[in-house]
Design a protein around this nucleic acid. Structure first.
Lengths: 301, 301
DNA sequence: GTCTTAATTCCGGAAACGAGATCTTTTCAT
DNA sequence: ATGAAAAGATCTCGTTTCCGGAATTAAGAC
């Protein structure tokens, strides 16, 4: 029994899908299938029932899920416990709105429990700005969206800044165009029947991805809003299409099942300066990796 | 972090020796060294301090040890929890005296806590007899000493019986000749200055190994005793050399540091009938494997 | 029925692992 | 002191395992 198998198991259990889980843990679906099968063979019990293309936990899978969470939490705790110098002081973390909303709560809670002596300073911002702030030492690290290759070539300044930093993928977001209810489903931006695209600031990678996609076939103005709640409200008026990752949309329990269009997966990176990892940063890094793809409800060892 | 690395770590921590630990977990020393180094690099902390050839836990190593025990215990519990049908009924286990004394207490305690519904019947005996009892279904399984190859060729009956059973190594014992205090150290049986060899029954593999070793150079009578305590007492009289594994000797806190001679490592096997693994047996098997090389003091998850 | 999506199976290249040989250092005996 | 023995570390090599991509199969949607 290998902890990485358990991480994979947790991802599959929480997504109820091999494909999603594979993205979440940064692997390929065939690999996820294999590891789950190995785990099942090792435990000599079937963890998921595959009726058709649905993966649902069996009763044994449910009980194993509880243990899996405890095991991961305990492993993380062990890792932290042997840290020779307990982190303290302040850690300045930059993050996108979306990550702060959907991914960070669990990690921050856990981090606070483990290291109450560290005061975390959170700064929200667009990926472009956050990156600059890390470079200029206004932040210790930041969670940003990696622009797709095509966009990086266009904006060589941003690309150069990224290359000057260490980076590591921690999440994968499924970026969506959210359509007003009743809007017909679309294949490309040409099918849009709205007056504008609602997004956050100009430096926001998600916004720029959406704009790139939209301008291929239509000349749609972007209306800039301050929050994802504002964007969704704007979509509800009927004349706007919103941009946000699925994880954020899921968070909002929108009343009606909205029509969405996938712009594809976008990686969230943790970036930090090379050769500058204060103890508090390493601790944060570890907590983040451990929380990756894990169920929100935290295990209490 | 891999559970097998943790198992190796536990073995090194409890033996304070790479070589011993390697035997305990059935690996080669170089491998143990590497895995420990990997673990240290992964945790970014040194677990052992190597002053000379002594391996002692560092402060961080100590704290990690606690977590390592808890992790293994939790993993074992998870394994047991998903067992689809809870084991019950009786399980008839045969064991050598020595194993019952040194290795089983921890495993049996844990097993009893986990499966109070299973009533364990322990039978002590010599390897030869236990094997026959498993074959004839008088026992469900047994812990026996694997005779070295040379001996197996001599006793083809025993060998055939073993081949008819499933077997799996679970412990490695360091078989010793225990000499009276003051006896000069020996290179071979020819250097023995005693009147007899003290051992258990004729079917005992340890006894037969010792007799084989002794008869190469001298014709020493074997005096048969009923227990290891009796053997040690007999050795204390000065005219007898005893046969026992090191683990048993260690258990007895003999007052003076006794002179010993190594007859080499002997594997302890768990043997059972092919295609006959009642649920209670599988549970026992798992507890045994998990206890292998682990510290006696059990972790309470 | 066809198309799409998801899971599994199969396969080749890459990385990790384990065993043995060698080397270094410590310890013990002479 | 000196040599021998033992233990740990290092290196290399053969094997296994693991990962990712392509092909395959199966289920649901239109």
């Amino acid at each position: 029994m290998d902890l990485s198998s358990i991480e994979i198991f947790l991802a599959v259990a929480s997504d109820r899908s091999v494909t999603k889980a594979a993205k979440a843990v940064g692997r390929v679906p065939s690999n996820v299938t294999t590891r789950i099968q190995q785990l099942e063979e090792d435990l000599n019990v079937s963890l998921f029932s595959r009726d058709g293309k649905k993966m649902t936990l069996t009763r044994e899978g449910e009980t194993f899920l509880a243990y899996a969470n405890r095991l991961m939490a305990l492993a993380l705790e062990a890792r932290q416990a042997v840290r020779p110098l307990a982190p303290s002081g302040t850690l300045r973390v930059g993050t996108m709105e979306s990550t702060a909303a959907s991914r960070l709560p669990a990690a921050l809670t856990q981090f606070n429990q483990m290291w109450p002596d560290v005061s975390l300073h959170l700064t929200m911002g667009a990926s472009r700005d956050l990156t600059r702030d890390v470079l200029s030492d206004a932040l210790d690290c930041a969670l940003i969206a990696r622009p797709p290759k095509a966009m990086r070539e266009e904006d060589s300044g941003f690309d150069a800044e990224l290359k000057a930093l260490e980076m590591e993928p921690v999440f994968v977001e499924d970026l969506l165009i959210v359509l007003p209810s009743g809007h017909p489903s679309i294949k490309s931006a040409a099918d849009l029947r709205v007056g504008s695209l609602a997004a956050l600031e100009p430096g926001c990678t998600y916004r720029r991805i959406a704009e790139n996609w939209a301008r291929k076939s239509s000349a749609l103005p972007t209306s800039e809003l301050g929050s994802y709640h504002a964007i969704l409200a704007s979509v509800a008026t009927g004349n706007t299409a919103g941009v946000m990752p699925r994880s954020v949309l899921d968070l909002m329990h929108w009343p009606t099942p909205v029509q969405t269009h996938q712009l594809g997966p976008v990686e969230t990176l943790l970036v930090y300066r090379k050769n500058d990892r204060p103890s508090a940063f390493s601790a944060f890094h570890e907590v983040l990796s451990a929380t990756k793809g894990r169920d929100i409800r935290l295990a209490t060892n």
